[in-house]
Nucleic acid binder design. Structure first.
Length: 270
DNA sequence: ATTGAGACCTGTCGGC
DNA sequence: TGCCGACAGGTCTCAA
């Protein structure tokens, strides 16, 4: 379940287990995920201590005492479990990090769209996918002005633009729809429609930038005391009633750039 | 330069 | 029950 809030939840769960922990052994149960594992992956991590576990967009970054950084992405179906040392592997358990604490961190990924790579920490920010990322949506760096600027000359639909990690880093298919609903903006609007000609933000851009932050913050907070999976505003609710107060619309599903978009045609008219 | 389509994988679910 | 297509939270590459 990996968009920014889910990755952040994973980080918060793993940080206490990994930070300061000594990795006694790494076991690969296959040679690749979306791409092959880097050369000497197990040997280069084995023996190191994890200094910090951080997140950038949907990536997890484990800084190691060896001055390498382990870059991880969960793809569509990746997940981590913390297990006792003697656990029996389950199907699709691909990477096992054995810690000298006696615990084991297991990476499981049925579809194998995940990624792991190991790079010198000094150059981690230049790792191709990381270097191209747009602003972190919960940082002060991301606001209506930055959003308006990157949308300025784009002819694609607003929803499609929100999925572009160069526009804003960490939104995925669920929270793009959710943010647009909160901001009362149609997913089919051209992206450029929220910016004025000189690139200054319109009220729509302000609403959208604020909605993105709100939606992500709420999702992160919900994960913290994780219980019932989701009460989405629109995602996966085709045919059901719009949850906005006073709106009698029915949620609609459309396909944009090959991906499902959910929205309310009544309150997300522009 | 942008943009959309297809590819990469496996699992699940609904319809016939 | 079984088979088959559609679809799933994400990138990446290729060709208009």
């Amino acid at each position: 379940m990996p968009e920014l809030p889910e990755v952040e939840a994973v980080r918060r769960e793993l940080a206490p287990v990994l930070e300061g922990a000594h990795v006694s052994r790494v076991v690969l149960r296959r040679g690749n995920l979306r791409r092959p594992f880097p050369i000497e992956f197990e040997r280069r991590i084995g023996g190191a201590t994890v200094r910090r576990l951080t997140r950038r967009a949907k990536y997890l970054l484990a800084e190691l005492s060896s001055n390498d950084t382990l870059i991880m992405h969960l793809g569509m179906s990746g997940s981590f479990r913390v297990e006792p040392a003697d656990h029996t592997p389950e199907p699709h358990d691909h990477v096992i990090f054995e810690l000298s604490s006696g615990r084991t961190v297991v990476f499981n990924d049925p579809r194998r769209f995940g990624v792991m790579d190991l790079v010198p920490s000094a150059g981690a920010a230049e790792w191709p996918a990381l270097a191209d990322l747009g602003p972190e949506p919960l940082s002060a760096e991301f606001d209506a002005a930055t959003l308006a600027r990157v949308c300025a000359r784009s002819k694609r639909a607003l929803k499609v633009a929100l999925l572009d990690q160069h526009v804003v880093a960490g939104l995925g298919n669920i929270y793009a729809s959710e943010a647009l609903h909160l901001a009362r903006l149609s997913p089919r609007l051209r992206a450029a429609a929220i910016a004025t000609r000189n690139g200054a933000p319109k009220p729509a851009a302000r609403r959208l930038a604020a909605a993105i932050k709100t939606v992500l913050e709420r999702a992160i907070a919900r994960q913290a005391d994780y219980n019932d999976a989701s009460r989405f505003r629109v995602y996966d609710r085709a045919g059901q009633r719009c949850r906005r107060r006073g709106c009698a619309g029915k949620i609609k599903r459309i396909v944009q750039a090959g991906r499902s978009t959910f929205y309310c045609p009544v309150c997300q008219r522009t």
